[in-house]
Computed example of a mutant assay.
Amino acid sequence: MIVHNLSEENSILNQFIAELRDVSVQKDSMRFRRNIERIGEILSYEMSKTLEFSSKKITTPLAEMEVKTHDNNIVLCSVLRAGVPLHNGLLNYFDAAENAFISAYRHHKENPETFEIVVEYLACPDLNNKTLILADPMLATGQSLVATYKALQPFGTAKNLHIFAVIGAKEGVEYLEKHLPKDAHLWIATVDDKLNDKGYIVPGLGDAGDLAFGEKLQN
């Protein structure tokens, strides 16, 4: 897997990451969602440089001219619910893309420190010969993204696979490297050093879904 860690270079991206992490700023859920959306836009722009382009002729009010546009058929697939703001950022740039959504969450058994990934909802178009982008803001253990990738396989074989994430842990990145195709690309805003005993990223930012949309209802 080819890893693109955008925090390794100085850019406005780092400001958005800092605001996502800062407890005094992340209390504003609208700003939290917007920052994830803006990071999605930046990741999309950087990833777009790897797409296939060809020339086509257009007509302006004054003349005809040739421009280069990308030829990829893109499918955006986000992991609900935290993935929604990130998905919106991708759609701002890939506005002609098809869309897929999946719910993949941790189900804790008797031991709160162990869990399995449960997929309950999935809507997806045909993936054959398309460019698939899987989006999930938090790359912790990597198990949710791998489960998502496997759940999508009945819908066809994508030509290219790209993973988009905001914050990840080294352990999660390594897990993806072991379980996803070698030619897959990971586009990530920043990578933290570790996970805690419950599998959450440290220093991380907390629960992205709760910060974006409020605390989950308890059964």
Rank of each mutant, 00 (worst) to 15 (best):
Ile2Phe: 03
Ile2Lys: 15
Val3Arg: 04
Leu6Phe: 10
Ser7Ile: 08
Ser7His: 13
Glu8Val: 00
Glu9Tyr: 09
Ile12Arg: 14
Ile12Gly: 01
Leu13Tyr: 05
Asn14Met: 12
Glu19Val: 01
Leu20Trp: 11
Arg21Gly: 10
Gln26Val: 02
Asp28Leu: 00
Asp28Gln: 03
Arg34Trp: 00
Ile36Trp: 00
Ile36His: 02
Glu37Trp: 02
Arg38Ile: 04
Arg38Val: 03
Ser44Tyr: 04
Ser44His: 03
Tyr45Val: 12
Tyr45Asn: 04
Tyr45Met: 07
Glu46Ala: 05
Glu46Lys: 14
Met47Tyr: 12
Ser48Asp: 01
Ser48Tyr: 01
Ser48Leu: 11
Lys49Trp: 01
Lys49Pro: 01
Lys49Val: 02
Thr50Glu: 14
Leu51Trp: 05
Glu52Tyr: 08
Glu52Gln: 13
Ser54Pro: 03
Ser55Ala: 13
Ser55Arg: 13
Ser55Lys: 15
Ser55Tyr: 11
Lys57Ile: 11
Lys57Glu: 15
Thr59Phe: 00
Thr60Ala: 09
Ala63Arg: 12
Glu66Lys: 14
Val67Asp: 11
His70Leu: 01
His70Val: 03
Asn72Ile: 00
Asn73Gln: 14
Asn73Gly: 00
Asn73Pro: 01
Ile74Ser: 02
Cys77Ser: 04
Cys77Phe: 00
Ser78Glu: 06
Arg81Glu: 10
Ala82Gly: 13
Ala82Trp: 06
Gly83Gln: 08
Val84Ile: 15
Val84Ser: 04
Val84Asn: 12
His87Arg: 00
Leu90His: 01
Asn92Ser: 14
Phe94Leu: 00
Ala97Lys: 04
Ala100Thr: 04
Ala100Phe: 06
Ser103Lys: 11
Arg106Gly: 09
His107Thr: 10
Asn111Ile: 08
Asn111Glu: 12
Thr114Arg: 13
Thr114Asp: 14
Ile117Cys: 10
Glu120Ser: 15
Tyr121Val: 02
Leu122Ala: 05
Ala123Val: 09
Cys124Phe: 05
Asp126Trp: 00
Asp126Pro: 04
Asn128Trp: 01
Asn128Met: 03
Asn129Gln: 14
Asn129Met: 10
Lys130Val: 07
Leu132Tyr: 08
Leu134Arg: 06
Leu134Phe: 05
Asp136Gly: 02
Asp136Leu: 06
Asp136Cys: 05
Pro137Ala: 04
Leu139Val: 08
Thr141Arg: 11
Gly142His: 09
Ser144Gln: 07
Leu145Ser: 07
Thr148Asn: 08
Tyr149Leu: 11
Ala151Glu: 08
Leu152Ser: 11
Gln153Gly: 01
Gly156Asp: 06
Ala158Met: 14
Leu161Arg: 06
Leu161Glu: 06
Leu161His: 06
His162Lys: 13
Ile163Met: 09
Ile163Ala: 10
Phe164Leu: 10
Ala165His: 03
Ala165Leu: 04
Gly168Cys: 10
Gly168Phe: 11
Glu171Lys: 15
Val173Gln: 07
Glu177Lys: 15
Leu180Tyr: 09
Leu186His: 08
Trp187Ile: 06
Ala189Arg: 12
Ala189Ile: 05
Thr190Tyr: 03
Asn196Thr: 03
Asp197Phe: 03
Lys198Pro: 00
Lys198Gln: 13
Tyr200Ser: 07
Tyr200His: 12
Ile201Ser: 07
Ile201Lys: 08
Val202Ile: 15
Pro203Cys: 06
Pro203Val: 07
Gly206Glu: 08
Gly206Met: 06
Gly209Cys: 09
Gly209Asn: 07
Asp210Glu: 15
Leu211Cys: 05
Phe213Gln: 10
Gly214Lys: 11
Leu217Gly: 02
Leu217Arg: 05
